[in-house]
Design a protein around this nucleic acid. Structure first.
Lengths: 228, 228, 228, 228
DNA sequence: AATGAATGAGGATTCATTCAT
DNA sequence: TATGAATGAATCCTCATTCAT
């Protein structure tokens, strides 16, 4: 009988307790990712330190390396988790009954991202991650996940927005990725940049992610519709 | 006869030769930036090492610091130079006589960026630079440059595209920045990512910057036009 | 049988062997300090390099930073250790039964310092250390240690030398610190200075720390006694 | 006719003007030393930068090296100047008619130092200077100066204080050097140390140079007198 | 004599990763 | 499985000094 079945009601495996069963290990992995997610809010890739992940997880540094081969693999796993959540929410939304118009789709796309602020900071990181040392297999798994889920959601979009030609759903998603990355970066400035933007003179450069994202999406959708 | 009187036609000041006049110094500075620009193609912010800039420039490490106080200041200067060139070309294009339609503006915007591939990799770096140690004044100078030139070009855009309401020119430019950053990141993958995208199965994720950028711009412009 | 059970009699932990227990770590720390102490003999603050400490300790540079946050903290720890030893010896000496006269106290003070030659070179360093980057807390801890131990020893001195008024014990110690620093500097010249002092003509400038210190102390004590 | 005789009333040679005559050169040297003296107040040996001396002098860095072979030689020259002034003042004071008692001599010694605060910060530096690269001849010149002037002043002291045995004058001076160094260091703490000493708890460690120096001298002199 | 651009050795510190326990 | 001490490569930046002009 595994420890996991001994009536332990807590969902979380106490740190420093050995994860013996596969389920325990999965849980530990998830805990590490949860810690990393929380940390990510106030860290850049460079300042995101494995030592701090370990400390915040209540684990030793070496233990992290039992679950993730490198720092990059850990961050990639984090990104995957967020993306899956995002796709799930999007697909669920698109599965609802119509009628769909541009505004409703825009609302859905914004709502789905709204709860996933970390994604806007993590998605641009993907490029940085891939510049570094990650196992080819992890990289391929990520790309395949991205493609498969994109294809599925693209189909949903094409279903809800009849003016989209075949293939335009995927193209729309690619544009969204670009906007998430680009607007995310502008809307989330480093402390010094934020300080500068607080100056009245520079205020026109301020960008609020939510409204800007919505405005972009809407414009894009109307543009695609008009293109017919 | 001094070197200065030899009608030196060469544009490049030989390394290790003292840059005495203001012009010489400007030239040396430009050389360093040119070296940095070339290096930037295969380096991330973290791997971009001052030692390598020096070595590639044929200069000593310390010499770099005569021209740029920090690594960040060097990279910010690089970005500024590219941006200024981009704005100049854009403004020059917009100054030509009309008639302007969406397609012509899109063509201009693409053409202007086409020769400035490095910009798509450097613009997203700005966020990283600002996270690090640069003098507040350098940061402010950059932001003000960005704002001033954006405002000027925005006016040009509003002149050429009558359907743009006041303020929409700047908004359009902000969208462009986001797209440059976002699409740039997707179109310029790290070596490992590129290798993966070469696999047939993942080919739908391939993005060619030029066409994608043009398609986005066109869609956005039609969308803004339709919004009237 | 683990290393820990082998009745390890050696006082020194072999370099590169992991210091696992708290005792091991304390020992490693002490080893580093011992290395630093030996090095200090032929180094100034500026030339005292962490790389050399590491090399001489048979450890990696990074390892030093597991035990001391900065170079300054290491040197401050070295100074603290020497001071504590000095105070301990002084207090032990003063605890012995009297009768105490000036000569006996002078003898004690000299004897106590005699075995701690490094102190005369390290005490003046304190000023330099404090000019640099150390945590405020480390600095305060040092100052409080110095004050507490000084106060305790001052009490001992006042007990043994009845002609000392309350407060004069501490004042005497402050004078001693000044003499240790000042005479220490004169008695321990740099190689070039030593070479010069070897010249017959300059011999009057030679100072032997021990006798000079004793002569100063004696004079001071007689002076304080006469002041009554 | 040298430029120096052309009725130039200013005592100072304008920076960047060539020093042609020997007198001009001497003047330029003196200017550099004056600048260095002013700088020394807020600099340690390490932070005392030749570049700043040059800038403050209105000269180029290279020019300094026409007058002083190394940074250390410059500082040694500065120390020599201060010492000579100190000895001059001391000898002048001792030349006045008696009667001399301990208090009057102490007053003289304090007064003579009082105007030369920089000396208390520079004298301890001598050791550091000699640890570095200075020409042997400069070093010997300094030592001989120190010895000669010490001998002369020692004679003056022995004349004024009849209880001093032959040789005790020089010994007294050596003690003074030690006290200047030692007390100087305690009385002139680095900013962080000063901040700590401002805390009430650590106030007993505060030392005011003037009173402390006087008290020490007095005690020493009474001690030497009593030793008869 | 004056300049100041160029030099380049040198040092502190960080942190992902390993591996002995 | 968990640990965490040890590693060591890697990087930015300083500054006394030189030397071509």
């Amino acid at each position: 009988m595994s420890r996991g079945q001994q009536g332990r009601t807590s969902v979380t495996l106490p740190p420093k307790q050995r994860a013996r069963s596969a389920a325990d290990k999965q849980q530990r992995r998830a805990q590490i990712l949860a810690t990393a997610l929380a940390m990510w809010d106030d860290h850049s890739f460079a300042s995101f330190a494995m030592a701090e992940v370990a400390a915040r997880s209540g684990l030793a540094k070496g233990t992290l390396y039992l679950y993730f081969q490198t720092k990059e693999e850990l961050l990639l796993a984090l990104l995957e988790g967020l993306l899956v959540g995002w796709f799930d929410a999007l697909d669920a939304g698109l599965a609802e009954a119509g009628p769909w118009d541009v505004e409703r789709v825009a609302s859905l796309l914004c709502a789905v991202l709204d709860e996933r602020h970390a994604l806007t900071r993590l998605l641009p990181l993907a490029a940085t991650i891939f510049e570094h040392n990650i196992p080819l297999e992890s990289a391929r798994a990520y790309k395949e996940l991205l493609l498969d889920r994109s294809a599925r959601s693209a189909a949903g979009l094409e279903r809800c927005l009849p003016f989209l030609a075949p293939g335009e759903g995927l193209w729309l998603l690619l544009q969204l990725y670009a906007l998430i990355v680009g607007l995310g970066q502008m809307a989330d400035p480093a402390p010094m940049a934020r300080q500068l933007l607080d100056e009245e003179r520079l205020s026109p450069l301020r960008v609020a992610f939510g409204p800007a994202f919505r405005r972009c999406i809407t414009t894009l959708l109307y543009g695609m519709q008009a293109g017919k």
